[in-house]
C-alpha cells in the first residue's frame, strides 16, 4: 500500500465511474477473460466506452438484474472475470438470491458494482437509495465489501478485485462528483485500512469510508483548531475488516467514532463495534443513517437531513471523549 493524501476538500473534474472505466479498459486489453455485464445503466456509468472497445465482452443484460447476476456467475464458471453493474439498490436487493447462491455459495467470484450508494442516489429518491446494500453483502460468508471514495481508489481497487478468485465482492461507487482524497497512482490493499491522520496525542479515532472520509478530514481540521487531536482512518474495506487497525486505534486513542453513508445498525459502525466488543471494549459513537429509509433531494440536503456531516462527527467525537 502506498498512497498520497491530497484531501483539500476539492471536487474532482472526473467522476469515480471514470476510474472504473479506465481500469476496465486496461484490464480488458490485457486479459481476454475480463467481462463487464450491465443492466441498462451503461449510460449512467459510461461503460459504453467498454462496449465500443470490447463489444463481445461488454454485455447489456437489460433491466433484469437477477438474470444478469446469474449470467455473471455462469460466465465466471467458464473462467471469465466478471463485473456486474447496476445501481446499488438493485445490484444488492434485486439480485441477492442469485448473488448468494449462484455466485458466492458456488464459489464463483462475481465482482458486483453498485453505483449511487446511499444519499448519492439523490434525485432518484427513496426507492433508489440503498442504506442496506453493504449490509446484505456483509452477511455473505467470505464476501469482500468495499466503500471507496474517489477516482484513484476506485481505479486501484477495480484492478485488485478483478484478480480475486473464488469469492464474491461488492464495491459501491459514487457515480458523479466526488471529493479528491488521494493522488492518482495511490495503491490500496483489500482488507487494510488507511490511516490518514495520526499523532501521539490522539484522543479519539474516526473510522470512515466513502463520502464520509472528506467529512472526517474536515472534522479533523476543525477539532485541531480547538486543540483536540484525532486519528482518521479510511476503512474502505468493510469486510474483511482490518481488526488489527481497529484494536490498535482503540488501545492508543481509547474512543471510536464511525462514519458511513449507510445504515449504521448493520454497516461499518456495527462491524467496528463487533471487533471492539470482542477484542478491546471502548466507547463508540456512530455517525450514519439510523434505521431510516431514503428520500428524494439534492445530495447536500440529504447529507444534512441524515446528519452525514463534519459537524455531526465533531459532536460525536466530543461525546465519545467524554465517555472515556
Amino acid at each position: 500500500m502506498s498512497f498520497t493524501l491530497i484531501g483539500k476538500h476539492e471536487k474532482d473534474k472526473r467522476s469515480c465511474r471514470d476510474g472504473y472505466v479506465q481500469a476496465m479498459l486496461e484490464l480488458m486489453e490485457a486479459d481476454k477473460s475480463v467481462v463487464h455485464v450491465d443492466c441498462d445503466l451503461m449510460g449512467c456509468i459510461n461503460t459504453k466506452k467498454l462496449l465500443a472497445a470490447y463489444p463481445d465482452r461488454t454485455i447489456n443484460a437489460g433491466i433484469a438484474e437477477a438474470n444478469a447476476m446469474g449470467v455473471a456467475a455462469g460466465l465466471t464458471a467458464t473462467g471469465k472475470k466478471v463485473w456486474m453493474h447496476s445501481f446499488g439498490c438493485f445490484s444488492s436487493r434485486r439480485a441477492f438470491d442469485q448473488a448468494f447462491m449462484s455466485a458466492a455459495y458456488a464459489k464463483l467470484g462475481v465482482k458486483i458494482l453498485g453505483s449511487d450508494p446511499g444519499v448519492c442516489a439523490a434525485y432518484n429518491g427513496g426507492t433508489h437509495m440503498p442504506f442496506e446494500d453493504c449490509a446484505l453483502y456483509l452477511s455473505v460468508p467470505d464476501a469482500i465489501v468495499i466503500d471507496p471514495v474517489d477516482y484513484a481508489q476506485v481505479y486501484a481497487l477495480t484492478k485488485k478485485l478483478t484478480a480475486v478468485d473464488g469469492r464474491i465482492s461488492y464495491m459501491r461507487m459514487i457515480r458523479k462528483g466526488f471529493t479528491t482524497i488521494y493522488a492518482d497512482g495511490s495503491d490500496f490493499e483489500i482488507g487494510k485500512g488507511v490511516t490518514l491522520k495520526e499523532s501521539a496525542d490522539d484522543q479519539a479515532t474516526v473510522i470512515a469510508s466513502g463520502i464520509m472520509v472528506d467529512e472526517a478530514l474536515k472534522a479533523y481540521e476543525a477539532l485541531e483548531a480547538e486543540g483536540i487531536q484525532i486519528r482518521v482512518i479510511d476503512m474502505f474495506t468493510w469486510k474483511p475488516i482490518d481488526e488489527e487497525l481497529i484494536v490498535k486505534a482503540a488501545k492508543e486513542t481509547g474512543a471510536i467514532v464511525t462514519a458511513e453513508n449507510h445504515n449504521c445498525t448493520c454497516g461499518l459502525g456495527s462491524a467496528v463495534a463487533r471487533v471492539l466488543a470482542e477484542q478491546c471494549p471502548a466507547p463508540v459513537e456512530m455517525v450514519g443513517v439510523h434505521d431510516q429509509f431514503g428520500q428524494v433531494g439534492a445530495q447536500n440536503f440529504l447529507q444534512e437531513a441524515y446528519k452525514l456531516t463534519a459537524e455531526e462527527i465533531i459532536a460525536n467525537v466530543k461525546k465519545v471523549i467524554a465517555r472515556k
Binding site: 434525485y123 429518491g125 427513496g126 426507492t127 428524494v296 437531513a305
Partner: peptide, 12 residues
C-alpha cells in the same frame, strides 16, 4: 424532488 416534497421522482 425538492426537500421534504410529496412528489418524488417515483410514485409513492
Amino acid at each position: 424532488n425538492k426537500p421534504s416534497t410529496n412528489f418524488p421522482s417515483h410514485t409513492d
